[in-house]
Amino acid sequence: MEKVDLIRARAVPLRADNVDTDQIIPARYLTAITTDGMGDGLFASWRYLDTGEPNPEFVLNNPEYKGAEILVAGANFGSGSSREHAVWALVQYGFKCVLAPSFGDIFYNNSLKNGFLPVVLPKEAIDALWEVLEDDPETQLWVDLRTQNVRMPDQQSLRFEIDPFRRDCLLQGLDDLGFLLAKEDQIVAFEAGRAQPAAA
């Protein structure tokens, strides 16, 4: 997993609440048996017209936002399905971070496991960011995981919360499986302590 510390980049305003995982990547892109090629399916229903051409109305297709690495979205982003493909698609497209007032639980978890930073900011801050980013797509945002701050365009800093353990894993690029495997002794003790394996 890639380390995350300071993300300094331009950002895309995605003005919608409840952007579900079917919007982030539709089911027809889930047929792969590897994690490759997901970037093409990102927001497919919004990004492409029925003809397969890019939809000029969709914000990601606006050339002014090209190269942006931060997504600024509405409440309950990533609700719905457990498909980790949604996170893979965002990462492969080039996003490193998403700011939103709240997230779907499973999506939030999946993000952390892929070095993709989900940041919870108050709704008012998101509203303000949308305005600024729509006015000036060149605006740079700083998302600093080390200090847990987002530097807003007006130079104010907004602190965000993240579980300290999660933060360390991201800063160091550690993945969870190693952590779990290191618990082997406790897992063995737990299994031994049960009268019988419940599913046997």
Binding site: S81, S82, R83, E84, H85, V87, I106, N109, N110, K113, N114, D175, D176, L177, L180, L181, K183, E184, I187, E191
Partner: peptide
């Protein structure tokens, strides 16, 4: 529900 990374976690560690 869990994501695919977690599917791997449970397969490998049952946790």
């Amino acid at each position: 529900g869990i994501g695919t990374s977690e599917v791997a976690h449970v397969l490998a560690s049952q946790c």
